[in-house]
Design a protein around this nucleic acid. Structure first.
Lengths: 241, 241
DNA sequence: GCCGGGCATATTGTAAACAATATTGTTCAC
DNA sequence: GTGAACAATATTGTTTACAATATGCCCGGC
């Protein structure tokens, strides 16, 4: 580890930073494409095609796909290739349960670690979220919203936890793509501004409560019915027709 | 996902279960070898050698090493191969901070989810720990101790969290291998029995407090000085001479 | 005797060719 | 006309050989 390496999860840097390794860049680009809902759950990721798109050999793509699979954002099927992951309802609930567990528990650490510069960074990010909301670009809006949660972990400064959060946010992005109800209003920046208030007051308990409520709100904006399980990926086709 | 797949982290199953995929087995074996301290931090993992040992091609080994690198139990250096990871002091502290965050926060969920069968499983595991302690096999003892913590997560039943815990336990194993002071007495089974008492009483707060104290105890049994940072892996050589 | 350059070796990185497999389309029998 | 068997295609899995790189050794110069 030479300088500022492996500060997150996966190859290079998943959300921020400048990937320099040849395949780290591809990893990053696909990751972002999925986070921005340009690649939707169920989309096939053919090695040859991706290899041509990025001008590299299949082998590189293969390696990248394995890394993405480890992040649970793509699913590998033996002899059948890779597809963008399609989280089940059960998986979705588990991801949100994990988020509640970790993000709520972080509250005391956040309050402790958040200095003036950190609060300023958070407020700057809120501006970004508002801008995204005005532009009515749902993908950008959602990505910014997820970045806020990662940012909170970054303030605490524990790279292990940041890595967990990155993974959870990536999976949340997929879950939202699948299960979001069409009539959402969200306005996540309001909830986030609320969280910042508690941080400024150094109110850890209040922050924890607000975070818990926020996460419940997000989950209740989804349609997570428990019927049937496992659409086996072709459910997505049926869902489209 | 056909039947009971991807219930943990990484390939196949990291700690329990029967790996059937050809390279999942190798992944599992190396993982266990590291957890049992048969492979120590800094040990080189040459592709050809491993390929011959397991009777497979280099490519399989390569894939496995990448998976292990993602788990942070091995470190990949470009053009220089793979070595068993050598966590820094900073990394070690972050891992333990993450464990405190998650394992303490799990307390209410554990109390809620622990039925009679679960408590029995925990008590059975304690027997295993005691046996390990009598045999004076430090490696076995430590592995059993880590399994207890994973078991707690499994009782809650959230596979995402179980995955996180598995990763944290694997890294804890490496950290212990490096930083354990020689005069430890540990007796983890006592602390674990204590945790079970709180679970039986359905005392979430008590469990949380006991868990926090237990984790602090484990960390204070290590020698985590903050000098110098980043040994770049050759610190291990210096440490030996 | 010590330092530096250059060669030899070991190991990993990469690419290309080949084999195995799944999917799709077609044809044939009934 | 329907169904199953078969062939064709597309895609992944695997092996092989080759290139690039780092490390250690040896030798010559000073």
């Amino acid at each position: 580890m030479g300088k500022a390496r492996t500060n997150g999860r996966g190859l290079g840097a998943a959300a921020a930073g400048t990937p320099q390794s040849p395949e780290a860049e591809i990893y990053h680009k696909i990751h972002v494409a999925i986070a921005e809902h340009r690649l939707l759950p169920g989309a096939r990721l053919v090695e040859d095609q991706l290899g041509e798109v990025f001008g590299v050999s299949r082998m590189r793509i293969r390696s990248v796909l394995h890394s993405l699979a480890r992040d649970k954002v793509v699913t590998l099927q033996r002899n059948r290739g890779a597809v963008v992951a399609h989280p089940t309802v059960k998986e979705a609930k588990e991801v949100f349960a994990a988020r509640r567990l970790i993000e709520v528990a972080m509250a005391p650490d956040i309050v402790r670690a958040a200095d003036d510069a950190a609060v300023r960074r958070l407020k700057d990010h809120i501006k970004k979220e508002k801008k995204g909301e005005h532009s009515h670009d749902r993908a950008f809006e959602l990505k910014a919203s997820h970045e806020f949660h990662t940012l909170l972990a970054e303030i605490v400064g524990n790279r292990v936890v940041v890595g967990f959060l990155r993974e959870l946010m990536a999976r949340s992005s997929l879950i939202t793509a699948i299960y979001e109800r069409p009539d959402v209003s969200s306005c996540s920046h309001l909830a986030h501004s609320n969280l910042i208030k508690f941080i400024e007051r150094r109110d850890a308990e209040g922050l924890a409560a607000a975070m818990l409520q926020h996460l419940h709100q997000i989950e209740s904006d989804l349609v997570l019915f428990d019927r049937g399980e496992q659409p086996t990926d072709l459910k997505s086709v049926f869902a489209g027709s």
